[in-house]
Amino acid sequence: MRGFDPRNYTGFLTVTLVCLFILYAPLIVVAVYSFNDSVSITRFTGVSLRWYADVFTGLEAAKFRAAAANSFSIAIMAAMAATAIATAAAVGMVRGGNFRGKPASFALISMPIMVPEIVTAVATLIFFSTIGFALGYLSILVAHIVFCIPFAYLPIAARLQGIEASFEEAAQDLYANRWRAFRYVLAPIMAPGIFSGFLLAFIISLDDFIITNFVKGAGVETLPTAIFGAVKQGIKPNIMALSTLLLLFSILIVTLSYLIGRSGNEKYQN
């Protein structure tokens, strides 16, 4: 007789496979069609890299290049600023003892996640327009910093919560002042959390469409707004190639984050 295993439920594996199929099928289809040799997106006529070449050298290459430059520069700056702000906030929240208004502080920090993105977009647009802040590169950057803070905060705070307070107590006991206890002990142990926070913020900024679309102003495009604009006229093969490149980039980042998270955990636990 087989033993009773409370973990096994018939059919759950099937559902899991269906789930993964649903998640991946559209992405794989687009990736496959991006290698299509044909100008038509309907018929698959042969394998070719012509649409990838088109992304870099075709008619719209300059537009894509400018959009990519905006996207990546904004994402790096927004993620760095958000990570710095979020790290300070996490230390204050997790290591700052109990204080009145802690729930309110948490609500404020997580507000950008709680409020529907479209509402954040409306709020930011109205605010910039009221104070007369010109819409453009800078307004996108500011909006992205705000929006990315909770995404950076959550992994950093989670990591910090898993680190016993006795580490910084030990550092202070050994004559490290508060800054040195953070610099030499807490920060290195938190590093994987800070890094995941940075990567998540980076990806969130890179991916954002709705807020960017509201606050970008005329003439400034990021990759998502450029793609959206192009798709409005129908899905063209070069867009599929560009999408596939972005898809690969996302997979690269998530793999990186996964590997770093794992090595960080192993170092800390054993």
Partner: peptide, 20 residues
């Protein structure tokens, strides 16, 4: 005095050795 200004040192229950 804060802990870093007291000439006493502690052996912690879980040792709290710096893992890095």
């Amino acid at each position: 005095l804060p802990p870093d200004r007291r000439p006493v040192n502690t052996v912690f229950q879980n040792y709290s050795l710096f893992p890095h």
